[in-house]
Design a protein around this nucleic acid. Sequence first.
DNA 1: TATGAATGAGGATTCATTCAT
DNA 2: CATGAATGAATCCTCATTCAT
Lengths: 206, 206, 206, 206
Amino acid sequence: MRSGDEPGGQPLTERGARTRERLLLAAREVFEERGFPETRVAHITRHAGVAYGSFYTYFPSKEAVFLEVADRLFADMTDHDLVPSTGSSPAARVRRANRAYYEGYRRNARMMAIIEQVATFNVEFQELRRKHRAASVGRSAKAIARWQREGLVSADVDPEMTARALAAMVDHSLYLWLVQGDDPQGTERLLDTLDALTVRALGLPS
Amino acid sequence: MRSGDEPGGQPLTERGARTRERLLLAAREVFEERGFPETRVAHITRHAGVAYGSFYTYFPSKEAVFLEVADRLFADMTDHDLVPSTGSSPAARVRRANRAYYEGYRRNARMMAIIEQVATFNVEFQELRRKHRAASVGRSAKAIARWQREGLVSADVDPEMTARALAAMVDHSLYLWLVQGDDPQGTERLLDTLDALTVRALGLPS
Amino acid sequence: MRSGDEPGGQPLTERGARTRERLLLAAREVFEERGFPETRVAHITRHAGVAYGSFYTYFPSKEAVFLEVADRLFADMTDHDLVPSTGSSPAARVRRANRAYYEGYRRNARMMAIIEQVATFNVEFQELRRKHRAASVGRSAKAIARWQREGLVSADVDPEMTARALAAMVDHSLYLWLVQGDDPQGTERLLDTLDALTVRALGLPS
Amino acid sequence: MRSGDEPGGQPLTERGARTRERLLLAAREVFEERGFPETRVAHITRHAGVAYGSFYTYFPSKEAVFLEVADRLFADMTDHDLVPSTGSSPAARVRRANRAYYEGYRRNARMMAIIEQVATFNVEFQELRRKHRAASVGRSAKAIARWQREGLVSADVDPEMTARALAAMVDHSLYLWLVQGDDPQGTERLLDTLDALTVRALGLPS
DNA sequence: TATGAATGAGGATTCATTCAT
DNA sequence: CATGAATGAATCCTCATTCAT
């Protein structure tokens, strides 16, 4: 994932580390502002206040910085994903997970849009997203299966497929809401609806 | 007809109509094959078996053919959307609508992927999609409201938001399934799950 | 000059003659409007209300129509050039000639601009203009020489060079005035100045 | 420096300055050789011995180099315009000014032709020329007015119009002589005629 | 004749990446 | 490390002219 051993990968000096960080931050901002295809390497270096050529001292290509920016974002999204899995009812846990995901999405909405964009044409990147999604869906599926064993969810339910479909619902709803931005007020109504639909769809006691 | 100031536009003869049609068909295939950014006008003309310049006799730009290809696709998707709205139970109707949508999606899966792609960077196109989505969501919301009046769906449900969220669920699930192609067998399991989730989420009597 | 025997030169039928004339008129208007390089054959045919292909029934190329339009214009300019050379004083004759030239220029100002334009890159056309100029300068030179023999103009004067220089003065002044259009009112002041300068420069009794 | 949004612009290093200069010189030569429309950027870079893309490191477009080449030329023409305005008679001063202008024109004749060419279709450029001409005409008009106050020129004369007309005479005569090149020997005869006509037209004591 | 479709060479510009200093 | 110049393949679109009907 991280550009490990390419020519000019990790900086060796303190000063180099600072330059690299500046580039990474600048890259994110420019990508958010203009999207991947419309971002020029020059935009990034200018924004970072470093020389054009310095870009290639730290990153082998435009794609490489993007991958790394995305990597950080995924990490951020996943970090906060970690809802304490004990205490409180399943319905409350669903609600909490949804909110946490929403917060992460909101924090990173612009960049999520660009990630969506890159995913439409970059196969390597598609694979990366699929892994992340699979991990997340896997966790949900496991929870559903547990709730089934505990008699909280009907045995009819297909945990894997259900987890996928519900994840798709939340994910895409937030995408349309936050990225394509139909009417960003009324967010509570949206979140409540997502919670309620999830809970009812699973047949969880609310 | 030759390059003046306006777009070349509609052919006036039978022969012209045939050429235009050839281009349109070729465009769709090439777009599906390579995606929008990687499609060269030369690919389209070669595929259509016409001279390079002939493309511009009928379309003012690469964007323009794309728009028209997409238009046809939207029409196709909408045509088959028309599920008879009477007879049979709500749950059955939900199922039928989902299947119809699935069939349309499957028929057009490759192109749907490209549409998704273009929507990530072309604002004009985003708007077009938003309209289509709004129309479709509107119809669902109306059905939900009707069911509420008929006492089939709880008054707690927010018809608009719910319609949106469920549409997002179906849409994105099919996208991931058919376009990103995680495991294309097991489709029945997916569809059954989507049906079941929808029905349960709405609290419809199955 | 006239496109004589090229393929599809002169029309053979009454109807053909009308079409050709329509094209010629349209060509002039479009050239005036957009200049030579920016004129498309399609503009001309559209303006004339004939089919694209019909253009090449009557003219072998875009240049050919231009040549013919210019030819007509030269004829118009020369026709009215013919000031009766008898009666009245030389000064009056100079004045009359200047006015006549001015009228012609004014009538054809737009097209004169385009002719100037084409002359800057088309050698064939440069030659044509040179002939016209030479003819006109020759007439003036002859008049000056006559006036010298009649003792009205000093023998010091070089008739050829003087005729050239004065023609350049009138020509270019009108060009800047009418074509580049610095302040088109005050024309009388300009013409009076041109007359006076010519008369004084030649030392003619006013 | 690389293609961002702004024009590449000024070089920051000695080496860059040299390349830019090479391009500028090459541009002038190619323009002179082939005219503006027939000049390809590739001609310029080949002539300068640099890579195609390097052109766009220093100039945003073909127009842009042309503007700069023309700027230099205008500067050159104006520099040598500076005739000492004191001492010697008005007639002598007129003569000297004409010669100085002639020398400038001769040095730059080829490029003057191209400037004429571009002025026929580029409005921005027309404006530029108008300014230069206005400045030059203004200076002459002032001199004429001064001579009127000193009683050397008749009060009948319209200084502004006269300055324009005489400038047009000299300018266009030199253009036809040096650019369209009717018979380039006999230059002395031409210049003497221009001097004499100017002096007599103004009624200056020779 | 009239019509309108077909052709395809041509050219300006972009921009990721590589080099030289 | 930093800097900024150098490179050149790649691609869209134009439009005069030729053809087929």
